[in-house]
């Protein structure tokens, strides 16, 4: 464990807290992509199957359960719970996620670490996580303006993987046999997708005023 990875996990937890607060207190899922939340639920439920046989640390096992529980709760609330379910707009949030899941599944089959069934599923989840934010970014693009809490949610989510990039650099230079090309590549792509958002987020927050984030 290093500070980058710890801060990355905290940033990821923060993103869950912000989103759960927004949809439970704000009683609205407007501006939130259910598609992205469904993809995250698939990512965590597939990647953390090894909950049942890998116990690298209590910290890891605990957070795996938390991430599966939170992502499932978010999908449940937006899909089934009133009044949130009425604030979800299927016409707007209509990114064809099958075009993300399909290629990631093929990639997981073809490019993975040890050719065991779990490694294929693990690689699939890594690739899918890299592109899971796309429906959310497309939804924000359509709306042009980003609600304040949603902008903090996306920023925390982007920061989490950005901090993981630093964690991988740190581990590469401090550990001998550390090599995780799959997650390095996918994590770089994932963070790259946020760069445009971060630019507009910074511009809108720079003046200290909480001017709304505007996406062109």
């Amino acid at each position: 464990m290093n500070i980058f990875r710890f801060l990355g996990d905290m940033s990821h937890i923060l993103s869950f807290v912000i989103l759960l607060l927004k949809i439970t207190q704000g009683k609205s899922a407007a501006g939130i992509s259910l598609r992205t939340q469904e993809l995250y639920m698939i990512v965590f439920c597939s990647r953390y199957l090894d909950l049942f046989w890998n116990f690298s640390s209590l910290y890891n096992s605990f957070l795996k359960v938390v991430f599966i529980a939170c992502s499932s709760a978010i999908v449940y609330i937006i899909r089934f719970k009133s009044p949130q379910k009425d604030t979800w707009n299927p016409e707007l949030d209509n990114f064809p996620i099958q075009y993300l899941i399909g290629p990631c599944a093929v990639a997981g089959l073809l490019i993975n670490q040890d050719w065991t069934p779990f490694e294929m599923i693990w690689a699939f989840s890594i690739y899918l996580e890299a592109v899971a934010i796309l429906p959310q970014l497309f939804l924000l693009q359509k709306q042009g303006e980003v609600e304040n809490l949603t902008s903090h949610y996306v920023a925390a989510l982007g920061a989490y993987r950005g901090l993981y990039l630093m964690n991988w650099v740190y581990r590469y230079f401090t550990e001998d046999d550390y090599l995780q090309r799959i997650v390095w590549f996918a994590g770089t792509v994932q963070t790259g997708l946020y760069i445009d958002f971060f630019y507009h987020y910074y511009q809108s927050k720079r003046g200290g005023l909480s001017r709304p984030v505007k996406l062109p």
Binding site: D50, S56, N60, E119, W122, N167
Partner: peptide, 10 residues
Amino acid sequence: AWGGEDHDEL
């Protein structure tokens, strides 16, 4: 082993 032993990150 079912795999994933060296994935010690979340």
